[in-house]
Design a protein around this nucleic acid. Structure first.
Lengths: 213, 213
DNA sequence: TCGGTTGTGGAATGGATCGTCCATAACGTA
DNA sequence: TACGTTATGGACGATCCATTCCACAACCGA
C-alpha cells in the first residue's frame, strides 16, 4: 500500500561511504551526503536515522568488506598454497595503499582513529574486525606450517598478529607519506623474514618472494 | 614597554595538545582550549593566530618529540648494543600503546588520518617524521650488522622500513582494539624474526628476546 | 477511481562554533 | 607618577550544521 522508495539503498550507502571516506565523520555534512546521493534530507533521515547511525552502517559495511577480501584471498585451498595465499594477501593490501593516490587511507583506520575513543559501536566493530582478520591469518599460517613451509616451532598466533600489524602498519605509514615503492618493499620484507622450516631454503631478505597477484 | 604575557606559552601548548589529542582537530572547540588553558579568546587568537595554526604548532611539536624519543633510545652507543637499543625502542613503543588505557592513540597517526589528505602542512610534517625515524632505524640496523648480530646480507633500508611499519602498526591495531598483551607479543615477535647472522643462534619465534626496558 | 500510507525534498529551526571587537588591565619607561 | 603599548577576556556577529517539519507526490489495494 505505501509508496515505495525511489532510491537504491545500496547505491546511497556507497555514495555516503565516499563522502565519509573522503572527509571523515566530523568533516562530512549531511548536506554533502544529500547532494551526493540526490536524496532530500527527509528521505535520508527517514531511511537511516541520523548522521551517527548512517556512519555506523557505512563503517560496519566497510568492516565486513575488509574481512571478506581477506576471506577471498585466504580461506579455503590446499595447504601447499597457504604460503602463496598469505603472500598474495599481504601484497594486495600493500598495493591497495600504494595505489591510493588520493591518500584517503582506509576508512577502518580513519574511523577508528577519529571515533573509537568515544564511540563504543565503532570501537567494538573495529575490534571484531581485527579479531576476524587475526583468525584468518592464523589459520593460514597453521596450514603453511602443516605443509612444511613455515617453521612449525613458531607460534601461529604470534605470526598472525605480526602480519596483521604489518598490513595495518603499511596503511598507516602510507598515509603518513612513505612512497609506494617503499610500501611494496615492506610487504616483501615482512614475508621474507617469516621463519621457514629447517629444510626450506631461507629467502633472502633483500629480495622478494614470488609475486603472484 | 608593553604589557608582558601572563601565561606560559609552553603550558598553553601542552593543554591544547591534550585537547586535540583527546578529541581530534574537528572535534575540539576553541572554547574548550580557552577553558582548558584559562586564556580568553583574545589572548589565544592573538598569540597563535587561528585554530589551524595552533594545531600545526601542536602537531609539529609532537612530531619533534616522537623523533626525539627515537633519538634518545637509538642514536649513539656502541655497535655491540645496537640490537639491544632497537629492541628497547620497539618495546617502548609497544608499551606506550599497550598502556594507553584511554585509547587516545598517537596524535601523529590521528592527525595524519584526519588531515593529511587535505592539509599539506600536516602531510609534509608527518612525512618528514617518517623519514627521520627511518634513518634512525636504518643506522642502528647497520650498526647491529657491523657487530655481527643482524645478518649482513639483509638490506638495512628494508629492515628499517619493516620495523617502522611494525611500530606504527602496533599503534594502529592497538587503537583498533587489540589487547595490551597481544601488542607486547607483537613487538617480541617482530624482533625475533629479524634475520640474524649465520653464527648467531636464531631466537625462538615463540619467545621473547631480552627485555631491557 | 479513491483513500490510506509512506516517501520526498526543501524550508525552517535551534543550537553550536569560529573569529572579531573593544573596553579595560598591567607593565615599562620617562 | 603619567603615558604609550600590548595583553586580557568576555560579549557579539556571522556562519554553519544537524535535525525537524510539512506540504505534496506516488503507490497499492479495494
Amino acid at each position: 500500500m505505501p509508496r515505495p522508495r525511489a532510491f537504491d539503498e545500496r547505491r546511497v550507502l556507497e555514495r555516503a561511504r565516499e563522502q565519509f571516506w573522503a572527509t571523515g565523520y566530523a568533516g562530512t555534512r549531511m548536506d554533502d551526503i544529500a547532494r551526493a546521493t540526490g536524496l532530500g534530507k527527509g528521505s535520508l533521515y527517514g531511511a537511516f536515522g541520523d548522521k551517527g547511525k548512517l556512519f555506523h552502517r557505512v563503517f560496519g559495511d566497510w568492516c565486513t568488506a575488509v574481512v571478506e577480501v581477506a576471506e577471498d584471498r585466504l580461506a579455503g585451498g590446499p595447504d601447499a598454497e597457504a604460503l602463496a595465499r598469505l603472500s598474495g594477501y599481504v601484497h594486495l593490501m600493500a598495493e591497495n595503499t600504494a595505489s591510493d593516490t588520493e591518500r584517503r587511507g582506509c576508512l577502518l583506520a580513519k574511523g577508528a582513529a577519529e571515533l573509537a575513543q568515544h564511540d563504543p559501536t565503532v570501537a567494538g566493530r573495529s575490534a571484531e574486525t581485527m579479531t576476524a582478520l587475526l583468525t584468518l591469518l592464523r589459520t593460514e599460517i597453521s596450514a603453511a606450517q602443516r605443509h612444511g613451509d613455515i617453521d612449525s616451532a613458531a607460534d601461529p598466533e604470534r605470526l598472525a598478529a605480526l602480519l596483521l600489524t604489518v598490513v595495518r602498519g603499511i596503511e598507516a605509514v602510507g598515509k603518513a607519506g612513505l612512497d609506494p615503492e617503499t610500501l611494496r618493499n615492506i610487504a616483501d620484507t615482512a614475508l621474507a623474514v617469516l621463519p621457514m622450516s629447517e629444510g626450506q631454503k631461507r629467502l633472502e631478505t633483500g629480495c622478494s618472494p614470488a609475486r603472484e597477484n
